[in-house]
């Protein structure tokens, strides 16, 4: 068992939107170690979500390699991917559209176990309830429907559903950007605890460098389909190398009145 969980080599993704061909991922290579949190940061349209979809098999790559634990999973069909599904799971951005509105919460969390026939039929519901408890949802809410929950609680449901199969890798696609600050902190802390307790690895996709800087091990800066800078989180924040990273950091308003406003906020700046 090697220490590298996910390795991506020279990945390209292009597809047709209407009549035009777009090329959102242009030759990306990266690796993610076991137990590591790698944050992928970029602005809208930089290709970060396409990259996540490609790793999850929702989008076919046009070339390149995605190796999960040494096995190439790029371009596997649905059937071939099924074996890897329990290992790579995902939490989506929008807590309102990411849960089937007609399923009860315990059903939603149990479903992955049913599909992969994990555990005895009778123990699956118990597993689902344990998972609810683990993410901080009272088990007697299991019979409710998603619309009866707040955004933060729905995100907990999504996390429970993703983790019920005990994956190794969790891809988080902007999991907190639709949430309020105080709820955002709750979810980030939950993810942090779960990672510690379950030995997970995270690929954390975000537009918020300030947020990921507080908990990611490494940060990859993505710009126009390429990774322009990658390194330890602290280092990227305090000593950015690439022009794009510098520009972004210059524009981030740090909530601290004792420091001068970021350069991009100064009226006379051009």
């Amino acid at each position: 068992m090697s220490n590298t969980l996910l390795r991506i080599d020279d990945l390209h993704v292009s597809f047709r939107v209407g009549k035009t061909m777009i090329h959102p991922v242009r030759g990306i290579s990266l690796h993610l170690d076991r137990g590591e949190t790698l944050a992928l940061v970029g602005e809208s349209g930089c290709g970060k979500t396409t990259l996540a979809r490609t790793i999850l098999g929702l989008q076919a790559p046009s070339s390149g390699r995605i190796a999960y634990d040494g096995n190439d999973i790029a371009g596997l069909d649905r059937f071939g991917l099924k074996r890897f599904r329990p290992h790579i799971q995902c939490v989506f951005q929008d807590p309102f559209s990411s849960l089937n509105p007609r399923k009860r919460v315990e059903q939603l969390i149990r479903e992955p176990l049913d599909i992969h026939q994990i555990g005895e039929r009778s123990t699956r519901l118990k597993r689902a309830h344990e998972m609810m408890e683990r993410v901080g949802l009272p088990t007697d809410w299991g019979r409710r429907f998603p619309h009866e929950f707040s955004g933060g609680q729905r995100q907990r449901i999504g996390i429970a559903r993703a983790l019920v199969m005990q994956p190794d890798l969790l891809i988080c696609d902007e999991p907190v950007s639709a949430l309020d600050v105080s709820i955002q902190a709750q979810i980030i802390n939950l993810l942090w605890e779960l990672k510690r307790d379950m030995g997970l690895s995270y690929l954390f996709i975000s537009h918020d460098l300030m947020l990921v800087e507080t908990f990611a091990d490494r940060v990859a800066m993505m710009y126009q389909g390429e990774i322009v800078e990658i390194g330890p989180a602290r280092q990227v924040w305090s000593n950015p190398q690439h022009e794009f990273t510098r520009r972004m950091i210059d524009a981030i308003p740090v909530p601290d009145v004792t420091r001068p406003p970021p350069p991009a906020f100064r009226i006379d700046a051009k």
Binding site: W192, T214, F215
Partner: peptide, 26 residues
């Protein structure tokens, strides 16, 4: 205070031990 503490701030991250301070409940 809770809001200020829950807001990520890289300049204070080390003091918080890598975890954000949350406001419990909703």
């Amino acid at each position: 205070r809770g809001l200020l503490d829950a807001t990520p701030n890289p300049e204070r991250a080390s003091a918080q031990g890598g975890v954000l301070r949350e406001i419990p409940g909703t």
